[in-house]
Amino acid sequence: MTSTVAHADEGLDVIAHRGSSGMAPENTAAAVDLAVAQRADFVEIDVQRTKDGKLVNFHDCTMERTTDIEEVFPDRPRYRVSDFTWAELRRLDAGSWFHEDYAGERLITVDDVISRIRNTDTGLLAEISPCSHYTGIATDLAESLLDKPRYVRRALAEEQLAVQSFQVDDAQEFQALMPEVPIGFLDAERPTDEELVQLSTWADQVNPQYTVTDQALVDRVHELGMDINVWTVDEPGAMRRMAGLGVDGIITDFPQSLTQH
């Protein structure tokens, strides 16, 4: 990456999308650890809930794409995280799909993610899953964090913790329980000015897809007192363009492109 892309110490947060997911299987310990080693400012994760109530780091609403779940459990009618216990999910290979070097890489819980980053300089950006079959997952995440007061206090003091969601209801449900944690609204479309004004009454971040982001949007979000993190930016030219607009953070599969000089 050329020097025209601002580094994090110049005010741009480098946010590792599902960990360093361009170089390791997404949302695994390998991807989280690599993001930390690459000096990402945040690891972005996805929060889902198992059948027995364990919060796990997994993105898709079903598990076929990134695990061997169909081979391990061939007779199950559905392959959602919520259809399996944590003991069952621990049996899955979540790495071979990416590369044979990661064969046997396991799924990890949200607690596992926190244990891997809590004594590092890398923060946590947790996305509440938008998968429609969940209810109460925002409350579950808040209660899990409330059970870790020492971690939360330190992370907030160092501006290393935030939560985001595509669902306004989930974001506000979380915020009601943990108002001190910065909350972001994810948007695949360009928010209207009316939507931005409404968001500014409760949200700390507006996090749109980078393809709908321009200078006017960045300036308006800032004018309304919010930050803006754009996703998912992997191409160097797009990284330079977004940095030039003055966004607050870039969510990327390749954090090393922004952290290495």
Results as ranks from 00 to 15, higher is better:
L92G: 02
E223D: 15
R116C: 09
V247E: 10
L217P: 04
P149I: 07
L145Q: 06
R154G: 09
P77S: 11
V221D: 00
I228W: 05
H7G: 12
A162D: 07
E173K: 12
F185D: 09
V233H: 00
M226K: 02
E173V: 05
A171R: 10
D13F: 09
L125I: 07
S132K: 14
V36Y: 04
V206K: 01
A35C: 03
L12A: 02
S129I: 03
V5P: 01
P208W: 05
F58C: 10
N207K: 08
T2I: 13
L89E: 04
A40Q: 04
P130M: 06
A138T: 06
V247G: 03
W86G: 07
I137P: 03
A16R: 00
P130V: 08
N119W: 13
M226A: 05
L186H: 04
R190D: 07
D227K: 14
E71F: 09
T122Q: 03
L55V: 02
G225N: 03
V47E: 00
T109W: 09
G184Y: 04
H7A: 15
P179D: 06
A176I: 05
A16G: 06
A103P: 00
G225P: 04
I251E: 05
I228Y: 09
W202M: 02
D60V: 00
E194A: 14
D169L: 11
D75G: 11
A37F: 04
S3Q: 14
M1D: 11
D193C: 00
A176R: 13
Y79A: 09
H17M: 06
L258M: 13
R154T: 13
P236V: 11
Y151I: 05
D68A: 03
E10W: 10
G95R: 04
M23V: 12
E235C: 02
H59C: 01
F174I: 05
E159C: 12
L245H: 07
V81Q: 07
M242F: 04
D112W: 08
Q48D: 08
A238K: 13
E189P: 00
D227Y: 12
H99C: 10
F98I: 10
I251M: 10
H17Q: 04
D253P: 06
D169A: 15
D111P: 00
P74N: 06
V56Y: 01
D219I: 01
R116P: 01
S21F: 00
A24K: 12
Q38I: 08
E194Y: 11
Q256E: 15
T259F: 05
P182Y: 06
A6Q: 13
T122H: 01
A8K: 11
D214I: 08
I250T: 00
L245S: 03
T232P: 00
R153S: 14
T211C: 01
Q48L: 02
V56K: 08
I108G: 02
V110C: 10
P236I: 08
R106N: 10
